[in-house]
């Protein structure tokens, strides 16, 4: 049984690296990522689980990092937007850039991670599948059309990539 008081030293696994940080027990994963680890690619749009800007992947699944306490994610594998591109942009990132799916960019990191988790399981989606998958990521700029197109485009890039391997 673990008990925690006001301030705690915790261990987080983020983008395949282990971090030891001190958090306030009230800190959410989002707070820890942004304030303690400087991983500011994860955005805060509402802090209430409503907008998806803070989406990160936990054990491969998209979650709202503003709705989980940092002390509650020990032992889980977290991926943030900073962990997606390896040497070059990930095909989803490329597709977002080239299809004009990025305007202000505030929804973009969360949107891309949601798309990543989705395309990991669904390689040949329809327009509606994509919309269902990103229905928890609000975007106020684009009207979603170019985001959906980018994700469909990314899916076909990923399929092509797989065939080549």
């Amino acid at each position: 049984m673990n008990r925690y008081g006001l301030k705690e030293k915790i261990e987080l696994r983020i983008n395949h690296a282990t971090h030891h940080i001190e958090v306030d027990v009230r800190d959410t994963l989002l707070d820890a990522l942004r304030d303690q680890l400087g991983l500011t690619g994860t955005k805060r749009g509402c802090d209430m689980g409503e907008c998806g800007a803070c989406t990160v992947l936990m054990d491969g699944k998209p979650i709202n990092s503003c709705m989980l306490l940092a002390v509650d994610v020990m032992g889980r594998n977290i991926m943030t937007i900073e962990g997606l591109a390896q040497d070059e942009l990930h095909p989803i990132q490329q597709a977002f850039v080239e299809n004009g799916a990025v305007q202000c960019g505030f929804c973009t990191p969360g949107m891309i991670l949601t798309a990543k988790a989705f395309l990991d399981h669904c390689s040949n989606p329809t327009d509606d599948d994509v919309r269902q998958a990103i229905s928890g990521n609000l975007c106020r700029c684009t009207g979603y059309r170019k985001i959906v197109e980018a994700i469909l485009d990314a899916a076909s890039r990923l399929r092509r990539g797989k065939r080549h391997v």
Partner: peptide
Amino acid sequence: LQRTASPQIRNI
């Protein structure tokens, strides 16, 4: 379940 909250919320 598909009509509940959002995909992210449903994962937590």
